[in-house]
């Protein structure tokens, strides 16, 4: 039996008829057309599907859509556009942290959630926050750099020396 679900995503309100077993990932992609959030495994092992709910990074493939009513969700489409990039997106682009790009939306959202909560994380805190993500192309090396550079912009780094 389908039921009507009201969802608030990226500041927009949606009403959709869904099956109770549908995941948030499924609803975002297939009902709302928000395909920026990718499916990497559907079983919680890769972090590719990460979105932010009430300020926390969550795996949308392990979250039932039905549980999301009344919560605030933001996805990769909601934080910046190619013309007006979020600082994390900008840093990923500039530092070569994007290769195939399949993991990128999930890792950008994970990094954003971290930096919103802790604007100056140290290396270990970044690794802890990103530990559930998975990037087969960049070896996470330039991703780490990109996240670090948002929290410690170049000029600040220099003045710290």
């Amino acid at each position: 039996m389908k039921r009507i679900l009201s969802l608030k995503v990226n500041g927009n309100s949606y009403e959709v008829a869904i099956n109770p077993w549908q995941t948030l990932l499924d609803v975002l992609r297939n009902e709302l057309g928000l395909i920026g959030t990718k499916k990497g495994c559907d079983i919680g092992t890769c972090g590719v599907c990460t979105v932010i709910m009430d300020g926390k990074a969550i795996l949308s493939c392990l979250t039932l859509a039905i549980e999301c009513e009344g919560h605030t969700i933001s996805t990769i489409e909601g934080i910046g556009t190619a013309e007006s990039l979020h600082p994390v997106q900008k840093s990923f682009i500039e530092n070569g942290a994007v290769q195939c790009g399949y993991c990128t939306p999930g890792i950008v959202m994970t990094a954003k959630a971290l930096l919103d909560e802790n604007p100056k994380p140290d290396d270990d805190e970044i690794k802890d926050a990103l530990s559930g993500t998975f990037c087969r192309c960049t070896g996470h090396i330039k991703i780490m750099e990109a996240v670090k550079k948002v929290s410690q912009p170049e000029d600040e780094e220099k003045s710290n020396v």
Binding site: I35, T37, K38, I76, L85, V98, G101
Partner: peptide
């Protein structure tokens, strides 16, 4: 020169399409 990838802005904003999309 250190050229950023031409398609990186699309990928970083969730606008690039893959097969499942």
């Amino acid at each position: 020169k250190r050229q950023t990838k031409l398609d990186a802005p699309l990928k970083a904003t969730g606008r690039s399409q893959f097969t499942d999309d």
